[in-house]
Simulated assay, not measured.
Amino acid sequence: MIVVPALKTERLLLRRPTFEDWPDFRDLMKSERSVYMGGPFLTVHAWGDFCQGIAQWQMFGFGSLSIEDIFTNRYVGRVEINYGPRCPEPEPGWQVFDFAEGKGYAFEAATEMRRWAFEEQKMQTLVSYIDPQNQRSQRLAEKLGAELDEKAEKQDPDDLVYRHSRRG
């Protein structure tokens, strides 16, 4: 049986996604906020992405976690490690809803997810595939200590690839 961890930070609970998270995630993926992830998406494609993040736990032992503010119990976004045909290497990813933007949730959640991947899963490296127009994600990757890796295989030909290492 696969155990999906519940990770805690000072302000956040990173927990197993639930069906109750689906409507907010669907709305995010159908909105302009998803443009740097290939969206906006149709509902059926948003559903596939939502389920993929859950299914990866069974296949790889990592996947998506919902981000919840522990003080309000509000679902504020998603953090994950993606892998498979869409991602040549394991990739930490993050999405927060517009009301949660600018509060440091993505940084806090991504920091904890990377810690878990490196310390508990013994991963040696991770990469973030980022659209060159997505300056917010580029800044976050850099704040996390990731560095551009021009030699890494790309998810999409135009992607920037930021490498996260254990030392970062």
Rank of each mutant, 00 (worst) to 15 (best):
E120T: 00
M1G: 12
Q133Y: 11
Q135I: 15
N134T: 01
F62P: 02
R86S: 14
G53P: 09
D21G: 04
A152D: 02
Q138W: 02
L12F: 11
R78F: 00
A141Y: 00
V79N: 05
K103M: 12
I2F: 14
Q121P: 04
G102A: 07
Q155Y: 05
G53D: 10
N134F: 07
P23F: 05
Q155V: 02
G102K: 04
W94S: 10
L7H: 08
S137T: 11
F71V: 11
Q124K: 13
T125H: 04
K8G: 08
P90K: 11
M29I: 06
Y162K: 00
V79W: 04
G102P: 06
H164Q: 02
R136H: 11
A110T: 12
V79S: 10
R86E: 15
L140V: 03
D159C: 02
A106C: 07
R11D: 07
S31R: 04
A100F: 09
C51V: 15
D131T: 00
F19A: 14
T72C: 01
S66T: 13
D24S: 14
H164W: 05
W116A: 00
V4M: 09
G145N: 06
R139L: 00
A146N: 03
F97I: 10
S165K: 07
E10T: 13
Y83I: 00
P90S: 10
K143D: 03
E147P: 06
K154N: 07
S165P: 05
W47Y: 14
L144D: 03
I130L: 03
V127L: 00
Y75K: 01
Y83M: 09
A141H: 07
R114I: 11
